[in-house]
Design a protein around this nucleic acid. Structure first.
Length: 687
RNA sequence: GCGGGUGUAGCUCAGUGGUAGAGCAUCACGUUGCCAACGUGAUGGUCGUGGGUUCGAGUCCCAUCACCCGCUCCA
């Protein structure tokens, strides 16, 4: 069973030294995390695997490591200073600050299905939407007005039926209600209203930005704190962290301060663009070629969260791949769209390759592949620099769901043009750029094949190293049953469950009595009932459902039930004994490649031999020695952190020079001569 | 941002105003011949933080911080 929640993965990370909360001694700082001894190995291995694939395995790629801090002009001309931001508004009355799109989103969805049955709320809400549309620019204006008028008219036509529904509901006249539902006019009215609401939803989604702005100009949004409808203009809150170069004492906003201001890079890409000409000239590269870079990036996110998925400091693995502009592409050469597609495929394959352990069978591979997908971004999602972007997404456990782990963008010649002087007028117009009067350079390239000078286009595969760590951890996490419980043990759980049911049923009765008497009940009958149903279901499927028992006991309705509290600790212990947690990491990613144990730690010859084997391998890859527990526990410990191989030295080893090699996923053991260990392990570790 | 929840030993948690606890983990000694063994002993906590009520607060009240769940949103 793979991870069911991020919580499980988070626990393991903090317990075993992958990731710790940052500045914990001072209460922590939201969204900053430190990588522990195992985390740093995993992160390094991820980066190594990426570098291997992006740089070493290709003929057309080189590496780079640019400075984190760059001239402020870089960010002005890249467009980040102006547009890399979220719209914020302040309430003029109570001075609270909100995200503009949040406020409007809440207002738009404030009408619920049941409001259909109250004519006033419905028409008031959508008349307000119509006024917002009136404030929008054409052609959205007339389109929106039509959509809003239709939803009002459709409701007007439907409303007499709504009243009848209410009447039948009140009288309990089910047969009259059924008759009415089947009536063709009713069907038509229902369909019309459904179509109108769908059209409304579609319009709002497609015109989200314009609708948000218009909502404020039309004064239709109210402050959740004080109810006022007067807000400042929506303005952009910049996501870039600021600092200063050199000692600056001037106040924020002054010329002196602005002159010394720098930003912590929000993406590593601009460092590559700055070095396009350096790399091309120094290595005499010909287009198409690419530059890869791994490095930290910083974004002052408004809502970070979900463990290390969205943090304000994170690490990127980015490629800028420079290609011919479409007009110079010769017969038989790939154009920008084909290069884009090729990179999407290559990167997708990389994700699958490292998400799949060698032990995976066909079924496992299908399951893994189903958790990765490619998704083309819609036009209104695209960043300011992109012609098209395809995201690679992973289905994270629990509430997080599908999350972006990489974006492959077609950035055209936007960035290199933005940083170039003397860009022709028509190109500036096409790219919606101002002429760059600050730059000393033109990032163009003479193409000997095309016999032309041009500014190359760019395909950008940009992956999150931090998100990759989380992705591979989630995918690798498994809890599996390794010991079949006996019938007696199962019966024990069943009888415990029966006891819980008996007690809970009494509590339900008591609670119902309390409610009737108008008193505050100690338990919520519905929730306890739901808990019992879940418990029954799980218990009836034992022993296969053993791992679900604790989950059931965590149910909301199980809270404050005495027998549950009593039952939980022994059950937890028992279940832990029957299951093992194993990280089925690809061996190339595993933080520790090999663990060596003595079968008996009070036999010096065995200990010595084990330590010497550890010493032999630690030069080649991360190897540990451990003798602090029984052999079974030592195996489990290594399983939990994904160590692919364990070696056990025993008495036989002293005589014939062989050891037991135990593989993580299958738990299979094999006898291997110490002299042959190196040749045995190396191909299996896929280093 | 809104709503709900949690915060007590390294970890998982119990503790309904009166002497801070259990299991696991860790360390020591003994035992232990391959999948979470056992015995004995020891270490470890100003109960997230700051205020308040009280003779007395882990427990009640207020504030604050962090995290989790849901909604919203987002490379």
């Amino acid at each position: 069973m793979p991870a069911k929640s991020l919580e499980q993965v988070r626990n393991l990370c903090m317990r075993r030294g992958f990731v710790f909360p940052g500045s914990a001694a001072y209460g922590g700082v939201a969204s900053f995390w430190d990588y522990g001894p195992l985390g740093v190995e995993l992160l390094n291995n991820v980066k190594k695997a990426w570098w291997q694939d992006a740089v070493y395995a290709r003929d057309d790629m080189d590496g780079l490591d640019a400075a984190v801090l760059m001239s402020r002009k870089v960010w002005q001309h890249s467009g980040h200073e102006a547009t890399f931001s979220d719209p914020m508004v302040d309430c003029k009355k109570c001075r609270s600050r909100f995200r503009a799109d949040d406020l409007v989103g809440a207002w738009v969805s404030s009408v619920r299905d049941e409001d259909m049955l109250t004519s006033e709320t419905w028409s008031k809400h959508f008349k307000a939407h119509e006024r917002v549309c009136q404030a929008m620019p054409e052609p959205a204006r007339s389109q929106g007005v039509a959509v809003m008028r239709e939803i009002l008219a459709a409701h007007e036509a439907w409303w007499p039926l709504g009243k009848l529904f209410l009447k039948f509901d009140a009288s309990g006249d089910e047969s009259a209600k059924r008759e009415m539902v089947a009536d063709s006019d009713t069907v038509k009215a229902n369909q019309r209203l459904k179509a109108a609401t769908d059209a409304h939803h579609k319009f709002i989604t497609e015109n989200a930005v314009a609708f948000t702005a218009a909502s404020f100009t039309a004064c239709e949004v109210t402050c959740p704190k004080c109810g006022s409808n007067e807000f400042t203009e929506p303005r952009q809150f910049n996501l870039m962290f600021q600092s200063h170069v050199g000692p600056v004492s001037a106040a924020a906003g002054t010329d002196e301060e602005a002159a010394a201001r720098v930003y912590l890079r929000p993406e590593t890409a601009q460092g590559i663009f700055m070095n396009f000409a350096h790399v091309q000239r120094s290595l005499a590269r010909k287009v198409p070629f690419g530059i890869a870079q791994i490095g930290k990036a910083f974004r002052n996110e408004i809502t970070p969260g979900n463990f290390i998925f969205r943090t304000r400091e994170f690490e990127q693995m980015e490629i800028e791949f420079f290609i011919k502009p479409p007009q110079f592409v010769a017969e038989g050469e790939k154009n920008d769209e084909q290069w884009h597609e090729e990179w999407v495929q290559q990167r997708y394959r990389w994700w699958l390759r490292y998400a799949t352990p060698p032990s995976a069978g066909n079924e496992d591979m299908e399951r893994i592949a189903a958790r990765f997908r490619k998704r083309a971004q819609a036009a209104d999602e695209l960043a300011h620099y992109a012609k098209a972007t395809t995201d690679i997404e992973y289905l994270f456990p629990g509430a997080l769901g599908w999350g972006e782990i990489e974006g492959v963008a077609n950035r055209t010649d936007f960035d290199l043009s933005a940083h170039s002087k003397d860009v022709p007028e028509e190109d500036l117009k096409r790219l919606k750029l101002e002429a760059n009067k600050d730059s000393n350079e033109k990032f163009d390239y003479f193409d000997p094949d095309a016999k032309a000078r041009y500014i190359p286009w760019v395909i950008e595969p940009s992956a999150g190293a931090t998100r990759a760590v989380l992705t591979f951890l989630c995918e690798a996490y498994h809890e599996e049953l390794v010991k079949e419980p006996t019938k007696q043990e199962i019966d024990q759980i069943k009888s415990d469950a029966a006891m819980i049911r008996k007690n809970a049923e009494k509590k339900i009765k008591d609670a119902r009595k309390d409610i009737e008497a108008g008193k505050e009940p100690k338990h919520q009958p519905d929730k306890v009932e739901a808990f019992l149903n879940q418990l029954d279901d799980v218990v009836s499927r034992l022993p296969a459902s053993l791992d679900e028992v604790l989950l059931a006991l965590d149910h909301e309705g199980a809270q404050n039930l005495e027998p549950v509290k009593k039952f939980r600790p022994p059950t937890e212990k028992f279940i832990e004994e029957c299951t093992r947690t194993v990280l089925r990491l690809h061996p190339a990613l595993a933080p520790i490649k090999l663990a060596v144990f003595p079968l008996k730690k009070n036999k010096p010859e065995i200990v010595e031999l084990a330590k010497s084997i550890k010493q032999k391998f630690q030069k080649h890859f991360r190897t540990v020695y451990d003798d602090s527990a029984g052999i079974g526990r030592l195996y489990r410990r290594q399983d939990e952190i994904g160590t692919p191989f364990c070696i056990t030295v025993d008495f036989e080893s002293l005589e014939d020079g062989t050891v037991t090699v135990r593989e993580r996923d299958s738990m299979a053991q094999e006898r291997v001569a110490i002299d042959e260990l190196h040749d045995y392990l190396l191909p299996r570790l896929e280093l």
